[in-house]
Design a protein around this nucleic acid. Structure first.
Lengths: 97, 97
DNA sequence: TTTGTATTTGGCGAAATTACAAAATAGACT
DNA sequence: AGTCTATTTTGTAATTTCGCCAAATACAAA
């Protein structure tokens, strides 16, 4: 495979990897219309705060979500809404089984 | 998190996982308009046939691609074209950086 | 400056992913 | 049946991912 093409698919695969975790999908759905802090999100999911912080970091690095600091808290919200369109296709895949 | 919701996100994450590999993204793009065998695909990418077979199996299990047997060969083609729509959003994510 | 709360980072073990090589299957063709 | 080719399965090693805990930071408020 061509080197440039290979790099392109590698880059795209990184994005899918960022989405390929139930907690991170939950985050995306949850912060699409509310802004929530790390602590609030970790309590909603029921995992350690440090684990949640790492999940958020992965989404942040890909600029899928963005955090804004308000007082002591960092409130996260969705930056790339088109990601939600993925889900309707994902549902088609699920319903195929 | 609610058990049903948890299961839903787990199921969706499985699909993203299936897509989260450069070789599998290459497969999807390549079999969207041509039908190719395992051997042909492995040669195009430059990986072992057994490795390619496993990648195809992952996509097959999710019914993202489908194989049809013709003589000695199994030709694969894309079953869920809406997956391609994912890519335009993925490009938006990439261009954000 | 000290306290208290929110978030991030580092370490570690368990589990999952990936690749190749070798062996096992499947089936077309003689 | 026997051969040849395509595909799948098994075994194994290297790498990555994930979750918790503990320690480190960040910073608002007292």
């Amino acid at each position: 495979m061509n080197k440039d093409i290979e790099k392109e698919y590698l880059e795209k695969a990184e994005i899918f990897k960022a989405l390929a975790h139930p907690t991170r999908l939950f985050i995306i759905h949850t912060v699409k219309d509310k802004k929530l802090s790390v602590k609030e999100l970790s309590e909603l999911v029921g995992i350690d705060i440090s684990t949640m912080s790492k999940h958020l970091d992965i989404l942040k690095k890909h600029k899928i979500i963005k955090g804004e600091k308000v007082k002591n808290f960092i409130y996260y919200h969705l930056e790339i809404p088109c990601i939600l369109d993925f889900m309707s296709c994902a549902n088609k895949v699920i319903n195929k089984k």
